Measured scan of single mutants.
Amino acid sequence: MAAAAAAGAGPEMVRGQVFDVGPRYTNLSYIGEGAYGMVCSAYDNVNKVRVAIKKISPFEHQTYCQRTLREIKILLRFRHENIIGINDIIRAPTIEQMKDVYIVQDLMETDLYKLLKTQHLSNDHICYFLYQILRGLKYIHSANVLHRDLKPSNLLLNTTCDLKICDFGLARVADPDHDHTGFLTEYVATRWYRAPEIMLNSKGYTKSIDIWSVGCILAEMLSNRPIFPGKHYLDQLNHILGILGSPSQEDLNCIINLKARNYLLSLPHKNKVPWNRLFPNADSKALDLLDKMLTFNPHKRIEVEQALAHPYLEQYYDPSDEPIAEAPFKFDMELDDLPKEKLKELIFEETARFQPGYRS
C-alpha cells in the first residue's frame, strides 16, 4: 500500500510507478496490472468513496492506442447498470505532455475469474450472474457493438453480487458484411471463450460470437473449470467437437473457408456428449439454455433477447427493466489503419471533457 500523499506533496508512487492523480484522489492501494497499465484503488475526496484507477501508458504502440481509444469512446457513450462506466479521466493539459491516461471507475471487490478459483456457486448465484451478463449484453448488442472478449476476468463483482462487464478494448461495431482481413492475426481474445466460426472463417462476425462466450462462462460457473481449455488453435476446435459432436452437413455448409471445411470433413465422426453427463448436478433449465448458447452453427445460436426470456431466468426476466441503447454506435473511421500519432490526438480530444474549465 502506498503511503497517503500529504496535501501538495506531488504524485504518489505505487510499486515504483508514478500515479499522478492528486489532489482529488489519494490513499492509493495496488490492485493489479494488465498488459499496459496498473490498477489501484484510491480515495475520492470529492465523492467520499474509494474508486478504481487504471493507469494506461499506450502511446508507444499502435495496438494499445487503438484499444484505449475504443474503450474510452464506447464506455463514455454507454450507460447501463451492468456495464462499468467511466467516472473521470485524468491526463496532462497538453498533448505533448500526455504520456499516461488515468481512467477512474467504480471500485468492484472482485471478478468472476477470482471468485470461481475459490468458491463453488449455488444455482441461485449462477442464475443471477447469468441474468446480469445477458442484461448488459442486450444493451451492448442493441448499440450494434460486439464485445468480443467476454470471459470471467472481464466480469466485475461486488459483495452485493452486482455484476458489471468491463474491458471493451477489443470491441467492434457489428459488421457481418465487412471482410476484416487479418482478423485472426489481430484477434487476441482469450482462445477458450472463442466461437468456432472465428477459427473457421475470417469473413465478418456477428453478435452470436458473444453468446458463445457467455455459454462458455455459464459452463464454467457450473463446474469451476473452463469447458474448452484448448492449448492452441486446432486443439481448441477438437475440444469443442469432442463435446458438441461432429457438425451436420448443414452446419458445414455455413463454413465459407474450404480449407477449414475440408479439415472438419477429414475428422472421424464424434457423438455429442449429453450435458447432464458433463454437469450431473446442474439445473435442467440451465443445461437447456447452455445447449442453445453453445450451438456450433452461429445462425442457430440463441440471441440475447431470447436467452433473457428463457425459463431458467424467469424469476428475473423483465423486458421493461432491460434497457437498450438510445442509438446504434458508430465509429467515424476504422481505427485499425491509423498511425499511433493520430490515435493519440483522438484520445486527447475524447478525454477533453474531463479537463478543468472544459467548454463543449
Rank of each mutant, 00 (worst) to 15 (best):
Y317N: 14
L155R: 03
G169L: 04
L265K: 04
I56S: 15
L200I: 08
R261H: 08
Q105M: 05
K164E: 01
L343V: 01
E305Q: 00
L163K: 05
L258F: 03
D210M: 07
L338D: 02
K55R: 14
R67K: 14
L237Q: 14
A35Q: 12
T26Q: 08
F228N: 11
A5W: 03
T26H: 07
Y131K: 09
R50S: 15
R67W: 12
E71L: 11
Q62F: 06
Y43D: 13
A2E: 02
W192M: 12
V145G: 11
V304W: 03
L287G: 05
Y317F: 15
F279T: 00
Q315W: 00
Y205I: 07
G215E: 12
Y317H: 01
L265A: 07
I256H: 04
A282T: 12
E345T: 02
R148N: 11
W212S: 12
L200K: 08
R77G: 08
E60A: 14
S248M: 08
E334I: 00
L244P: 11
L244G: 08
Y139A: 08
K117F: 07
K54P: 04
G204E: 12
K340L: 11
H141I: 05
A2I: 00
K99N: 15
L200H: 06
L258I: 06
L338G: 03
N281I: 15
E71Y: 03
G215H: 09
L241I: 13
N154R: 02
P339L: 13
P319C: 07
A35T: 15
D210E: 13
R24S: 14
Y312C: 00
H180E: 09
I227C: 06
N257C: 08
M293Y: 06
S202C: 14
V101P: 03
P226C: 05
F354T: 07
N158C: 02
I217R: 07
D177P: 07
L338S: 09
L107W: 04
L112R: 00
Q315F: 01
E109G: 00
A260Q: 04
P93V: 01
I240R: 00
F296Y: 14
V14L: 12
C166F: 13
H310V: 06
A282V: 06
G16D: 00
E250I: 01
P11E: 09
F78M: 06
K48E: 13
H178K: 10
R77K: 01
A9G: 09
Y233N: 15
V49Q: 09
R24I: 03
L75S: 07
A309I: 08
A171H: 06
D291H: 11
A260D: 12
A219G: 12
H125Q: 14
D106N: 12
K270Q: 11
H180K: 07
G230F: 07
K300F: 12
G204W: 14
D318I: 10
M293W: 01
E349M: 01
Y187K: 03
D106W: 00
P226T: 14
N47R: 15
E341C: 01
